[in-house]
Structure formats: C-alpha cells, structure tokens
C-alpha cells in the first residue's frame, strides 16, 4: 500500500511539471507586456528594461522555464507577484481558506441533499418522486452556476432580504455561494446514488439476502447501501476536487475572496506569476484529492485493496 502511494506521488511530479510547462507557454504567448502593465503608463524605457532583467523576462523561454521549475522544486518558491511583490505562495494561501470553506460547504450540502434523494429515488423507482427527482437533477446539471447565483441573489437578497449577496465573513454570507456551487454536485450525487443502488439491488447477494427472508429495510439499508456507496464516495471526492477548481464563477458572482477570484483578477492585471502559481496549485490540490479518493476507495472496497500490494 505504501509503495502504491509513493508511486502515485512520484507519478504526480512529471504531471505537475507538464502542467507548469503548459501554463508557462500559454502565458508566454499572451499578448500584453507584463513590464508595461505593472510599471504603468509613465514608466521609462530604462525602468522597463531593468524590470525585465530583474524578473528574468529578457531571457530565452526555456531558460525562464527551467529557472522557474528549479526554484519551485529546490526552494518551494513559485515566484513573486508583480503587483504586491509578495511570494505567490502567500497570495494563494491567503485566498485558499475561503475557497476551501466554500467547496467544503458545497460538498456537505450536496451529500446531505443528494444522497437521500438518490436512495429514495432508487427504492421507489418509477414513482412520482423518482421522476421529479430525476428531472430536477437534470435541471441542476444544466443550470449555469452564474445564473443560479443571480437568481438566488434576486430572491434571497433583493426580495426577501434574508441573506447578504456578498462578503464571505459570516456564516450567513456563506450560504448563498455554497448553495449555488452545490447545485451541480447535488444532481450528480443523486443520479449516481440512484443508479448505483439500482445496480446493487439486482445483484446476487441481495437476492440471497432477500431469499433468506431478511427484512426489506435491512436489505436496503445494510446490504445494498454499503455496496452502493462505494462509487458514490468516489464521486464525492471527485466532485470536491471539481468544486475547488470550479468555484471561479461562484466566487466572482458573490465576491468571495478565494483562489478563483484571485486568478481572474491576476489574469486581468497580467500578474503572470500568480496565474501560473494558481493553476499549478489547483492542479496539485486536484491531484491530491484524486489520490486520496483512490486510497479511500481501496480502503472501503477490499477487493481493490488486494490489487495495491
């Protein structure tokens, strides 16, 4: 198991270097000179030259990239923001808690709502509830988060005056963004729980349990659920990763000071190091969450655990 984990982590390194390379190339090709953007209209040619030299922007592309990777690996230094001059890592770490909170809230809501709906749907397959749940899940999947966000603001902030439309300092202010962000995950978890339950219910051991005369509720809640949950747990993990990254739009609607908003602002201000660092950071977070999901998967499903030795 430990060897497996180590192998996975080792495998992560080339992937991340690849990500760094892609992002680096993209931003390198972006029109717009960061030196002029940062120094402003009045900057002298000399100042711009010096800035380029200081930030290494005058070096050949591969050298710039190599330098970046070298520093990242040896010193954990992924550059400094052009704007605030702080290490990019500080900038990201200052915004990450908000994103993490947002994503965590959203996943909790998604599980609390999605799981029971999925189970109920499966138990009462083809019932009115099932049909409605499936249609709503589809609507949830199709709902653009930025539109849902605006509708929530319109209803809860403008008309009912219950919840604030921005600010992420209080519990109350976190409700709307989390709700908006969770909609897609609720739908996915509902759908996945339902189909997974249905599959399990047809399985042989459930038939065996039934034929042994166990109560239907025991069959459903003990035998079926336990096995049906395995893929659902995986989905939840994957969803959490997506939420971490996908919060960009939600953050910009509700003015949540998270990583997504930091990146959008940085793109607009040509603060390349922050954009690079941000994408890299999200990729790491995403990969780590995926790794954890795989491990969890192995943990709850003994059949898979055996393969990892």
């Amino acid at each position: 198991m430990i060897r497996y984990i180590l192998r996975r982590i080792l495998f992560l390194i080339p992937v991340l270097i690849g990500v760094a390379f892609c992002v680096f190339t993209l931003l390198y090709l972006t029109p717009g000179d960061p030196a002029r953007m940062i120094l402003g209209d009045m900057a002298t040619e000399n100042a711009i030259k010096e800035f380029r030299a200081k930030e290494g922007l005058d070096k050949p592309f591969l050298l710039q990239f190599g330098n970046y990777i070298y520093k990242a690996i040896t010193q954990g230094d992924i550059g400094r923001s052009y704007i605030t001059k702080r290490p990019v890592m500080n900038e990201i770490m200052a915004t990450f808690p908000a994103t993490l909170k947002l994503a965590a809230f959203a996943i909790v809501i998604a599980v609390v709502v999605g799981l029971p709906c999925g189970i109920l749907s499966a138990i009462k397959q083809y019932s009115v509830f099932d049909t409605l749940a499936m249609i709503f899940a589809m609507i949830g999947l199709s709902m653009p988060v930025f539109w849902l966000g605006l509708l929530l603001i319109l209803l809860f902030s403008v008309h009912l005056r219950w919840l604030p439309p921005s600010g992420f300092d209080t519990f109350k202010a976190m409700i709307l963004p989390s709700l908006a962000l969770s909609a897609q995950s609720i739908s996915m978890i509902t759908r996945m729980t339902r189909s997974s339950m249905l599959e399990v219910v047809r399985a042989d051991y459930i038939r065996t349990a039934r034929s042994k005369g166990q109560k239907e509720s025991v069959v459903i809640w003990v035998h079926a659920l336990h096995n049906a949950l395995i893929p659902v747990v995986t989905l939840c993990g994957l969803q959490f990763g997506h939420l971490l990254a996908g919060a960009i739009l939600t953050e910009s609607i509700f003015a949540v000071p998270g990583v997504g908003r930091l990146m959008v602002e940085s793109i607009k201000m040509r603060d390349y190091p922050v954009v690079q660092g941000g994408v890299l950071f999200v990729a790491v977070a995403f990969s780590v969450v995926n790794l954890l999901v795989d491990l969890l998967y192995a943990y709850i499903d003994p059949r898979i655990k055996a393969q990892y030795r």
């Binding site: 992937v15 993209l26 931003l27 990763g241 960009i248 990146m263 793109i267 999200v282 990729a283 995403f286």
Partner: peptide
C-alpha cells in the same frame, strides 16, 4: 496519454480560462 493526463489534472473550466486569457 501522459500529455492528456497533464491536461486532465487541470480542471476543464480553469484550462479554458487560461487558454482564453492568453488568446484574448
């Protein structure tokens, strides 16, 4: 496929944003 793994490790929306930002 390793290249695809690299692209897959960046969530799709984020990747699209990064590309759109650099293309204008």
């Amino acid at each position: 496929m390793r290249l695809m793994d690299v692209l897959l490790s960046v969530p799709q929306t984020l990747l699209a944003i990064a590309i759109a930002a650099s293309l204008g």
